[in-house]
Design a binder for these strands. Sequence first.
DNA 1: TTGTACGCGTTATCAT
DNA 2: ATGATAACGCGTACAA
Lengths: 339, 339
Amino acid sequence: MTRRTNPKLSDVARGAGVSLATASRALSEPELVRGDTRERVREVAAMLGYVPHGAARALATRESRTVGALFPPVDNPIFAAATQALAHELAMSGYTLLLATHEYDPAAELQVTRTLLERGVDGLVLVGLDRDPELYRLLAQAGVPYELMWSLDPSGFHYCVGVAHRIASVRATQHLLDLGHREFAVSAGRTAHNDRTRERLAGVREALAARAIELRPDRVAQAEFVLPQAREACRELLARSPGFTALVCGNDVLAIGALAECASRGIRVPEDLSIVGFDDIDMASGVTPALTTVRVPAAEMGRRAAARMLARLAGRDVERTEELPAELIVRASTGPAPR
Amino acid sequence: MTRRTNPKLSDVARGAGVSLATASRALSEPELVRGDTRERVREVAAMLGYVPHGAARALATRESRTVGALFPPVDNPIFAAATQALAHELAMSGYTLLLATHEYDPAAELQVTRTLLERGVDGLVLVGLDRDPELYRLLAQAGVPYELMWSLDPSGFHYCVGVAHRIASVRATQHLLDLGHREFAVSAGRTAHNDRTRERLAGVREALAARAIELRPDRVAQAEFVLPQAREACRELLARSPGFTALVCGNDVLAIGALAECASRGIRVPEDLSIVGFDDIDMASGVTPALTTVRVPAAEMGRRAAARMLARLAGRDVERTEELPAELIVRASTGPAPR
DNA sequence: TTGTACGCGTTATCAT
DNA sequence: ATGATAACGCGTACAA
């Protein structure tokens, strides 16, 4: 097979017997060119297998038809769902997703953002509120629009689409209080560089405080969103300070780990211990009907973020803040067992 | 705040009192420039907040420092793990991941590949073997290297890193046979446009055939990798042709769905029914200790694909085919209950 | 070691 | 409706 070089627009133009300008218009702005020449150009382009050179176009147009997304890690099921939605929605409008991760490290997030800007993203999607403010300066200087997902910016300054984690957490906790629980424990995610986790924990405290119940320090554990740590957190709580009848988990993975640990110890859920999770990962809820969760609509978050970004890139206006509902899904929970 | 325009290399050069060429070298090939001027350029660049223009660089160098990845959907936990690994590994070497999905539609895959090529990816990572051959022609013409993940190309032509699905499936089935099972059912993934699913199903048939056992057509169901369909598949099998003591699922999601369905019917696993899954999704195995699975190392697949691609982009040679182990993880399974 | 000048492939401006 | 030509911002021969 002859190792031909890639055909360029000038090849198409020559083949169709038109100028470079006409060829360009025929492919990019069809309405500006006469029907027959337009078809001729298109045919030649197809025959040659012409593929436009994005970098050249980006250089001339000053836009890349590309949007960046920066996730903590993308293998967390909730972020995977959002990523899928983002990529899909963007593709529907001719945009491609540039994906990067920062593993909850603000320095890495900043560095990666620089790279994304170098790649020329037309917009950027970020998760949450906790980050080096320098990042916003970078984006401002570059003139790149961005959307924050998952959280709602209290200042109302940033464009964002998210849920009210604290309020949802308060409601979940109240649900348990209403069932009669008084002894609470929390298996929280790491709160460093993670406002969602902090808000959820704060919500539990707030709801308890409203009824003058204290959340003992040894009744709070932190873990990363992986099963071994999730089990360990539950184990630790049971060891340090048993006797709680309700366990609020900052994430479904943590909740599942807790369920697994309980199962292996013969602790019945929800009879002996009521467990509430967050996020409503479908695999989790499918497996453990006992799990009551706060549903945070991850895929919808991705769809909305994409839609909002696309709208802004198209010059349309969007509300600065868009709140998504965080619904409490009660599958099974009971009051505390009589002592 | 004054709405300054982005500084370009010429601004940096002027600020440092050097030529464009020197400024370029100071940032990209530091060793070619004298220490003091290099530092001067760097300082000015930092002060100005200079961010290189990727498109311009790509145009000049003919490479984008970008790699594309094309997944069926990326919210399947196994693909999410691979995506995470890919993005991370590529970033470590200064490459950025362009992510796209095709939802098991070959036409979409072809179309999306065109877009990725337009974006100027330096390499492309694909999943599996089932696709429009035209795609390979496109890549060849563009001169873009690619890696296939998950499957091993029987022809040995394509660069690939994957596992031997059929053999693994045979082994898993033999394990069940060795336990004494004779009545089998299979909850398979959709086999259209999915060689992994087909091979796994074929593996079951092969192992059974070797012992002259037939897999009845009404003992095979197909479902997408989502829980509701997974439960439905199991329900269907039980309705159409009960009496099987072993169920092989083409994926962990299908296995989990089956477990859920069994739980709701009071079918004990593994006492009444032995279930084997594929992929070893950690959340699945954490929750259901009864699940025996074939571990397909998804994250490792991503890492290896990234490493191989990076090596090739750096001009190094790699083996055309790299096989990863697919280990049978026996957690709990028993022989059939005496009738 | 540094500078000059051209080319990368496309779009956009201005004529015609 | 079409064509000539100048950007777009950077890398890199080649010359100095």
